[in-house]
Simulated scan of single mutants.
Amino acid sequence: MHHTLPSDFISVRETNFSQAEEYLQLCAGNQQDGAVVSFVGLVRDFNQHSQVQGLTLEHYPAMTEKSLREIVAEVRHLWSVGRVRLIHRVGSLQAGEQIVFVGVTSQHRGQAFQACEFIMDQLKTRAPFWKKERDNTGEHWVQAKQQDQQKAQHWYHQKHPHHIR
């Protein structure tokens, strides 16, 4: 028996999340999907030759939510996925804290893995978050790296060779 899957869950917030709870939400009542892929990103303590103590993520709520919904809609257009859960934290975070959760279900693991990686690649380059890192010399705004831009673009050439974003 097929149940209707709930709509996508997208949350931008300061509070932390439980990976176990998010996994349970992806699985609850979901008997048609055989794959659950999730990714958790942490604030790392090293970036571009400096020791990072923490970072502050700022955003414009309406713009951010619209951007995240567009990324998830694109995932649904490119792959056959069941549920998508996306949590991105904002505010002041310390090294080692969780910053992002992406969870995707699908009938087959390949689709779920690709969709999850696509979301992360797009988050790093398209989502309107402004990141300021703190280290022993002060605070510095961080730009998306060229390699992140290239990784985000490769999906369009891979899925649709003639599609240029």
Results as ranks from 00 to 15, higher is better:
Arg44Tyr: 01
Val72Gln: 05
Ile10His: 12
Val72His: 07
Ala35Glu: 03
Ser92Cys: 04
Lys131Phe: 09
Trp155Gln: 07
Val12Gln: 08
Leu5Thr: 14
Gln32Ile: 03
Ser7Met: 01
His108Gln: 11
Glu74Pro: 02
Pro6Phe: 00
Trp141Pro: 14
His140Phe: 09
Gly103Ser: 06
Glu70Cys: 13
Gln149Pro: 03
Ser80Gly: 08
Val81Lys: 00
Trp155Ser: 09
His59Ala: 03
Ser7His: 11
Phe118Asp: 11
Lys132His: 12
Ile87Trp: 03
His77Ser: 15
Arg134Asn: 06
Leu78Gln: 10
His2Val: 04
Leu78Asp: 12
Gln51Asn: 13
Gly138His: 08
Val36Ser: 12
Lys131Gln: 10
His108Arg: 02
Phe118Arg: 06
His77Tyr: 05
Gly41Asn: 05
Arg83Pro: 08
His163Leu: 15
Leu5Ile: 03
Gly82Asn: 05
Ala112Gln: 03
Tyr60Cys: 06
Gly34Phe: 05
Gln51Thr: 05
Glu14Ser: 14
Glu133Tyr: 05
Gln19Trp: 02
Ala115Asp: 10
Gln158Pro: 04
Val102Arg: 13
Glu133Ala: 12
Leu26Met: 13
Asn47Gln: 06
His140Ala: 15
Trp155Glu: 01
Phe9Ile: 01
Ser106His: 04
Glu22His: 06
His108Ala: 11
Glu139Thr: 15
Gln94Lys: 14
Arg76His: 09
His162Trp: 12
His59Leu: 01
His88Tyr: 02
Met1Ser: 15
Leu24His: 11
Gly54Lys: 07
Arg13Phe: 00
Glu58Asp: 11
Asn30Met: 05
Asp8Cys: 11
Tyr60Gly: 02
